[in-house]
Design a protein around this nucleic acid. Structure first.
Length: 160
DNA sequence: GCCAACGTTGGC
DNA sequence: GCCAACGTTGGC
């Protein structure tokens, strides 16, 4: 069985990699996803053991900042049932939940984040979802792209 | 804060 | 089911 690689976008002001690191057991539910395509991937494709690249958006330097592991597969996102919650959805019922979450555990923080700028500048990433469909919040990462990111990470970790 | 891209909603 | 209006995302 082969694991898949994903990229989850998040706003560090709301819930960033530091929050995941500091969470109990360094584990947290990835809630609040309210886009059908992202939902379908969460629900149907993302498995325990998959690797997730954590990407920070809407911040000074948008970048991939580290990695996490999926520790629980899709189950209903409880925030859809909370009327006071910003991600509340009154069309959702407990019998037919509309939105799902997975659980992630912190794996590592990169010594130096890999910025969106770097990724866009490198033609090796021209076909990456992050470049082609930047608004999708749950993205697929190919094995090839992952290897390139690992290599970039390695080279940046070594002081010049 | 601007604005382009794009997802969602709802009238018809 | 089309499509215009509208809302959201997110880089810059």
């Amino acid at each position: 069985m082969s694991q898949s690689i994903w990229l989850f976008k998040t706003e560090p002001d709301v819930f960033g990699i530091a929050d995941l690191m500091n969470a109990p057991n360094q584990t947290a539910a990835w809630d609040g996803v309210r886009n059908y395509q992202a939902r379908n991937r969460l629900r149907d494709e993302i498995l325990v053991g998959d690797t997730v690249l954590i990407y920070h958006s809407s911040c000074a330097t948008p970048a991939i900042v580290g990695e996490a592991r999926v520790t629980r597969s899709a189950h209903p996102d409880p925030t859809q049932f909370l009327p006071e919650h910003p991600a509340y959805d009154d069309r959702s019922t407990r019998e037919a939940p509309r939105w799902f979450q997975v659980e992630l555990q912190f794996a590592r923080q990169y010594p130096s984040p890999i910025s969106l700028k770097q990724i866009k500048q490198n033609p090796d990433f021209d076909d990456m979802e992050l470049v082609i469909r930047p608004r999708l919040s749950i993205q697929k990462v190919t094995d090839q792209e992952y290897l390139l990111i690992e290599a970039l990470c390695q080279s940046m970790g070594v002081s010049a």
